[in-house]
Structures are given as C-alpha cells and as structure tokens.
Amino acid sequence: MDSVACRCCDLLQRVPPLPRGGKARCVRCGQLLATRPADPLDAPLALTIAAAIAFAVANATPMLRLSAEGREAQTTLPGGALAMWQAGSELTALAVAFCAVVAPACHLALLLAVLLAVRRPPAPPWVGVAMRWLERVRPWAMTEVLLLGVLVALTKIAQLASVAPGPGLFALLAVVLLVPAIATTFDADLVWRRIAWADARAQVRA
C-alpha cells in the first residue's frame, strides 16, 4: 500500500486496496485520489482508437452547410479557424485551431502512444514524458465546448439562412461522448507503475 499526498491539500494518506470500479477521495478536502477501473488497459485503448477515427472524420468532413437565395456554403473544423485568420483575427484563429484541433489531436495521439507502450512493462522513460504532456495539453482540448459552440452558431445562423448539420458535427458528437469514457477507464497510477524509473537505483530501493 503506497502513501499518496492529496494534490489539493497535501494530506498524506494511505489508499486501501480498492474494489474494481472503486474510487478513493481525500478525507480532508474531497479530491479524487485514486480509481480502479475494471479494464484499465484494453478499454481505454479501444475507446481511444474509436475517438481518434471519429476526430479525423470530424476534421475532414463539413461541420455545417448553409444555403440562402440559391447560394451554398459549408465549413469544416479547420476551415473555421482558417476563416477567422483570413478575416483578420489571426490570434483568435490560432487559439481556435489550438483548442479545437491541435490540442484534442495531441491528447488522443499521446493517449494512444502511452496505452500501446505500457502493454508490455516496463515501458521506456519516454512514456513518462508523454504522460506529462498528456496532462499539460488536456485542459486545452475543448471538444465539448466546441460542440456546444457549433450548435449555438447553427441556431444563430438559422435565423438568417437555412442551415443544416454536416457529418462532421455527428463525428464531433461521438468524440465528445467517447472522451469522458476514456477518462473513466484510464488509470494514470497504473500507467506510471508500468514505466521504468528515471533513477533506476531509487526504484530498486523503493
């Protein structure tokens, strides 16, 4: 049984062995300390592959289609950021491209790399670096906010012209449903335990 320190209040505590699907929270501040998903290697891998495919479709196919007075227009996800750039708001375009395309893509790619690499422990130390970047990029991957944004935009434009959702919107919906499922089946502690230590002598002592 390892000691853990709560990342919110630093209280040192021991986490009892958890049943499958169990969760442990900090006794002092309520922060989630540990989880034990039933299938922490295969389930998140399968879900991540599905999410990566859905995300590729969401980027490659039209998100929204518009027709007004005999004219048609459509936009994809990267096309949205590009339009913002061309309209002269370059910084906003970069932020949208990062939060809507780059960060979710990096998040899924890093997850895929980590989950494949830890199948055979001990995983090499670069997997630890991937885990670090995974946590850094995650707050900026805003697919669920993006989905709501596209839906609000659709309703706004519907008052001006006739607008229809494209296949990209449904693919984005699939990503939004899959990402929280990955998070609940993923066990970061288990992954870290399967990675070789940077300081091999300390690992022997531990």
């Binding site: 936009t75 590009l82 309209a87 906010v145 993006l146 596209v150 659709l154």
Partner: peptide, 25 residues
Amino acid sequence: SMLDVFVDTFVVALVQLSPLMSVAP
C-alpha cells in the same frame, strides 16, 4: 467561457455571402 469564441468562429466561417450578407470578427 471559450464558447462564444467558437460560436463567432463558425458564424464568420459560414456566413460569407457578400454582397448579400457577410459577417466579420
């Protein structure tokens, strides 16, 4: 809070029917 930025982006990207109607950020 990023919601409005995404909404504006997709309105700008889609409503480009000049001279009939166009939206800019």
